Simulated scan of single mutants.
Amino acid sequence: MNNKPTIHDIAKALNINSSTVSRALNDSPRVTLKTKEKILKKAEELGYKRNVLASSLRKNVTNTLGVIVPRISRHFFSSAIQGIEETAYLAGYNVIICQSLEQLEREQSIVNGLVEKRVDGVLISISMETLNYQHLEIVKNSNIPLVFFDRHCNEAGNSNVLIDDFKGGFDATEHLILQGNKNIVHFSGPNELEIYKNRLAGYKAALKKHNIAFNPENVIVTRLMEDDGFKSMQTILNLKQKIDAVFSANDMAAIGAIKCIKQSNLKIPDDIAIVGFSNEPISTVIEPSLTTIDQSGLEIGKTAAALILSYIENKQIPEKGENIVLKANLIERNSSKRN
Rank of each mutant, 00 (worst) to 15 (best):
I261M: 01
I255W: 09
I261T: 02
A213S: 15
K231W: 10
K242A: 14
M225I: 11
D228Y: 04
K262Q: 14
I220N: 01
A254E: 03
A257W: 00
D244E: 09
E217C: 06
K242H: 12
N218S: 08
N215L: 04
A213G: 12
Q234S: 09
V221S: 11
Q263R: 09
D251G: 15
L239A: 15
L237G: 01
Q241C: 14
G229N: 03
A213F: 12
A254L: 09
L224T: 03
L239C: 14
K259P: 01
N215M: 03
V221L: 11
F247N: 07
G229I: 08
Q234E: 11
N250F: 13
V219C: 02
F247G: 06
A253Q: 11
A213Q: 14
L237C: 02
I258H: 01
D251H: 14
A253I: 10
L224G: 05
V246E: 03
L239S: 15
A254F: 06
E226L: 00
S248D: 06
S232V: 01
F230D: 03
G229A: 06
S248E: 05
E217I: 09
A249W: 09
A245I: 06
I258Q: 01
A245R: 04
I258F: 03
G229R: 02
M233D: 00
E217H: 07
P216N: 09
K259F: 09
D251Y: 15
N218L: 06
F214R: 07
N238E: 14
A253M: 14
D244W: 05
S232D: 02
F247L: 13
E217R: 05
V219Y: 02
K242T: 11
A254P: 00
D227P: 06
D244P: 02
L239M: 14
A254C: 10
L224P: 02
K262Y: 10
F214T: 06
Q234N: 10
G256K: 07
K259R: 10
E226W: 00
A245E: 05
K242E: 13
S248W: 04
A249V: 11
V221C: 13
E217G: 04
D227Q: 13
V219I: 08
N215A: 06
M225H: 08
P216R: 03
Q234H: 12
E217L: 07
G256Q: 11
N238P: 08
